[in-house]
Write a protein that binds this DNA or RNA. Sequence first.
DNA 1: TCAAGGAATTGAAACGGTTCAATTATGGCA
DNA 2: TGCCATAATTGAACCGTTTCAATTCCTTGA
Lengths: 340, 340
Amino acid sequence: MATIREIAKRANTSIGTVSNYLNEPSLVAESTQKRIEEAIEFFDYHPKAAARSLKSRYTHRIGLVPLISSEDNRSENPGDNAFLELLAGINTAAAENKYDILLSGATNHSDEMKTYQRLFGEGNVDGIILQGIQSEDERILFLKKKKIPFVTYGQSDLPIQYAYVDVDGGQGIIQAITHLKSLGHKRIAYITPSKSLMCTRQRWDGFVKGMDQNNIQIKDEYVIEGDFSERSGYESTKVLMNLKTPPTAVLTSNDVCAFGVIRCLKEMNLIPGKDVSVVGFDNVSISKHWQPELTTIEQPFRKIGFLLMESLLNMIQGKEEFPHKLVQPELIIRESTGPV
Amino acid sequence: MATIREIAKRANTSIGTVSNYLNEPSLVAESTQKRIEEAIEFFDYHPKAAARSLKSRYTHRIGLVPLISSEDNRSENPGDNAFLELLAGINTAAAENKYDILLSGATNHSDEMKTYQRLFGEGNVDGIILQGIQSEDERILFLKKKKIPFVTYGQSDLPIQYAYVDVDGGQGIIQAITHLKSLGHKRIAYITPSKSLMCTRQRWDGFVKGMDQNNIQIKDEYVIEGDFSERSGYESTKVLMNLKTPPTAVLTSNDVCAFGVIRCLKEMNLIPGKDVSVVGFDNVSISKHWQPELTTIEQPFRKIGFLLMESLLNMIQGKEEFPHKLVQPELIIRESTGPV
DNA sequence: TCAAGGAATTGAAACGGTTCAATTATGGCA
DNA sequence: TGCCATAATTGAACCGTTTCAATTCCTTGA
């Protein structure tokens, strides 16, 4: 394998100049550039990343640590393509900046933190992207303490400054309510997981605001505190449908929960999308193939990935300190919502 | 950040000994080990990957270049979790050997080859895992020519020696036929994509063998050359069901094609799993939630990932030259197959 | 013709590990 | 006690870049 010295020799110049050409071509005279290019071509030269990063301190890599369940559970979890789309976005921004992605799976959060420390400590990565943020995420505290540059996808409740990209979930709920109103719905129920979660709180705020904007009064009995599970959707629906005046539409906080709602409606011989409208959140891959196809709120994962990477790079390069970015979700209208 | 020299100093030993401790602790006296461990703990020391690989030539990283479609297509392609599961398997074997995974997406195969060359040329990775092998895959030729260590998931038709891990698709088809036979089926149809593909040919061989083993004669009119699309499943089924004596069971080469079969059956007012049994191939995440739930052949992606990584490491370490491994798929029996 | 100053180039030191031949310590045995 | 084999340790050279102060080259204006 050729080294920078051989390139310099063949191009009849010094290694310093070749290095300049590699990093800041404008410093090098055009005629010299030509000769260097010829030599690089001739030897099929690629500067060694190890040598480069040893001296320069930049690895040109960022770390991503997906949580990997310890058992095979292919078809269980429908979070599926979201990760791939996020990756696609991250990759796009990375490639534009000549960065690569280093992946090292972990099976739990304490593993994950060890991995972060190792990746950064060993100088494998310049920074880290965090996903699946929890309300008091210990990983955020850890990375902050270790002074490891990082961006998160989603916000925590921690009173700390850090960079994040987040979806404006409240906006999504507002869109859904507006859509339902336009179909004539006024009796709108909302199944929300515990408001101790940051994202749920945002959505709740959106719910309040959306109802207000559309001049609909929030009825306490239409608001049910559940969780993200299919079961929760099912049980909550049972309660809702047994009310004196049951709602004509149900908002949920994720698709899986909406699937539970649909199952319950079917069991009660109600036609989802006709008798009762249902809106999910996430647009997981199966929601398009559900019966009926699910109206849901989609998070733009590619864009999120792109922004995550962009923000991280800005931090690493010292251009921004703690960038905050909010992106708008999109309402995907399918069969599970219809006129009253 | 501490360096090996500071560790040596505090542990009152030489850098050579610390290096030995790091790489081959058995070379170091126990008492010395203790002191070194204390020093490492004290400084929270992590040996720098760049320095290490600069001299040792090992990066402790392998490369993976997923093809990333240029547009957002979250819920279109159900290949979804397969990649994640593969990754999980690769990651497990990687972690056991202190390896990390470097990911760098590409949008097409020529991009992909450039990426391979860069990753290996710059010394970012020790070897590469190739997926989505085609019958005359140019990437295989390229990597072979450039002497880049690699393993593929799947075989090509190229008359070259290289390492691969593959699923014994033929075995899967045999299992499916045996299952159908046990349900009383004798009129079994098979929709197969063009036999020019390696994997289709394997499956065809399995079909022939499986029918023979179960003493069923292959009827020419029950064999339809289609492709992997939903449409192909639909069209082929139309032809099959209009035969004088239509088949009672249909084998396909992937789940999406099977979905097409099911759609056609429903349109013809036939009940899939009752009037006609249908078997898919892949067990994509939605097949479990299909109507009816799809009987299909599952590829053990975790295991495949694990074997891929293991084989690659063996090659890198010179333990094996071109390991070949075949894994057995598993028949997942659900609702789309039933007694005649 | 010369001085000044910017553009281009130079080369030695530095980054933080690994490697290996050489050296020293240790234990077993006659 | 002395000798030998083996275990443990040492430290200088090296890996291939980047960095930067120093030097040379070139142009311009007086």
